[in-house]
Design a protein around this nucleic acid. Sequence first.
DNA 1: CTGAAAGCGCTTACAG
DNA 2: CTGAAAGCGCTTACAG
Lengths: 333, 333
Amino acid sequence: MKKNNITIKDIANKAGVSKATVSYVINNKPGVSEKIRNKILKIMKEMNYIPNAVARGLAGKKTHYIGLIIPDISDMFYADIIKGVENKTNSNNYLLNLVTTHAEKAKEKQVIDLFTGGIVDGVIIMAYHINEEYIKILKERNVPFVFIDYPFTTNSVYTVTVDNFDGGYKATEYLIKAGCKKIAFLKGSSVAWDSENRFKGYLKALNDYSIKIDDSIIKDANFRREEGYTKTLEILSNKDIDGVFAANDQMALGAMKAIKEKNLNIPEDISVIGFDNIESSKFSEPTLSTVEQPLCKMGEKSVELLLELIDEKKPKSKKISLKTELIKRKSTK
Amino acid sequence: MKKNNITIKDIANKAGVSKATVSYVINNKPGVSEKIRNKILKIMKEMNYIPNAVARGLAGKKTHYIGLIIPDISDMFYADIIKGVENKTNSNNYLLNLVTTHAEKAKEKQVIDLFTGGIVDGVIIMAYHINEEYIKILKERNVPFVFIDYPFTTNSVYTVTVDNFDGGYKATEYLIKAGCKKIAFLKGSSVAWDSENRFKGYLKALNDYSIKIDDSIIKDANFRREEGYTKTLEILSNKDIDGVFAANDQMALGAMKAIKEKNLNIPEDISVIGFDNIESSKFSEPTLSTVEQPLCKMGEKSVELLLELIDEKKPKSKKISLKTELIKRKSTK
DNA sequence: CTGAAAGCGCTTACAG
DNA sequence: CTGAAAGCGCTTACAG
């Protein structure tokens, strides 16, 4: 592609000044008389001049780009995070570089390498296959980065997460206060840290309210609606329960299906609460009570954190943990 | 931000060759012996060297970035388009620059200026305030661009659109074939070109099947659910109808509410069909028949078109029009 | 208040 | 097969 666009040199020539002076005007720097400044501004406008952002990036060491690495975009979960990132990025005059990995290991590394190669001023990473060893390499690259919702147990990395423990606690406590005494728990999977933290919140709440933990009503349903359904059927055929807390909405929806099939009423006989606040939770019959994650805010906070890093301010803390919000609908008393 | 990253010079020094030779290796160009190539490759790996993409962009005239300008991201409508764009961008080894405008005029121009300033190799634009005059300026900037879903009547611009006329025709024909003879039409708004084209499809279908057009059952409901509801109530109190075609799903949902309130059955008494296939259309009672737009594909096609432009191949046509798909559910016979 | 010059990290003819 | 050099379009000390 041949480009023979107008450059700073053309503007300088036309204005009868040096490139430096034009540059000062572009960047709003002092040291240029009003008269010349206005003249240059006028010429830039007349010639429809747009400074070459790539050249500015090279010369100025700043590209004003922020990279975002995220698994997917069509999932509303990620879409909300992206939205938050995009909001804050834009309002701070940065531009967003978005790339999806579909949680593939090779892709994750590839784009992280790319983004730490000088093309962005900082990177926000939501990835699943980045280990401590790789983190070390990243740090040598001198491009600041922030992780979203990643459970680094070490304190090696800046990260923004959701307080899943607290969310699990709140949901369980809400059920208890509504009168539930035998609350089943549907796990995502034992390796899913978010589900596990919600589970820990559940255990703590039961403990605090002196409710005995019954392992036979705690099942792993792998975050899937189908398994939420079958596992709930299993529980119902053996046990009396009056509440179900599912670690995500999909499983909760499956649980509701099972409960209705057994001709039990929601919430009169059994209360159900989920996690995530997905779109379908608003349309289910009955509508599903759930715990909403602050996704958009998570995106925003990660940009704020990253910007501090880029500006070389020392953030107060390496970890920002955001609270969830309880959404009360018709599936709970 | 100080960066003292490893550069091509460091690699060249370490390998005892010139920068050019390293560059040839990076870019997989011929003219380097296997032995030296391997040596350089090894050193690059050892030093965790990542070529600076900004410098490559400046020197090589190609940034391998594609800019996408879109109103919003949290709306699934746009999210699906973005997804399509992202897919194709990635599979062609380009990177996505995403920026949202919220359909604000100033913002649209601002980001278009930015993207045509050398930072991307091409731009995909979904905007609402760009006129022919501005298009002229864009063209001078030598950065190829493609519009999505924009109704340029002139042939001045490359664009990918949905065949709304055909979609409107298909929906109407489907109702007619299901036995409907008096089909109300709910418009988006008279200035919305997509709604207008669907409306033209509706008119054509009625004509083709010799059904008389009745202006009193054609209403403007501004794409909104609430107005879909009130306008349908209006129609029902004056007229007997046996079908409703709404130019989007929101209005169709409103229409269904009105019909049910009048104690009429869907689809036995009145069939309802919408447009868009939004998430809620799957959960309504009854589920809503609708016309799905090929959003993801639209994103993909726009990238394909843009890539041809970037590679200076002449695309066959300036305009790509994509067909919709009829989704049959329970709101129609 | 203004300009000449070096430099950012690459790529690409060109010469050998 | 390899290297020295110019150049991409800016920014930023530095000198005046």
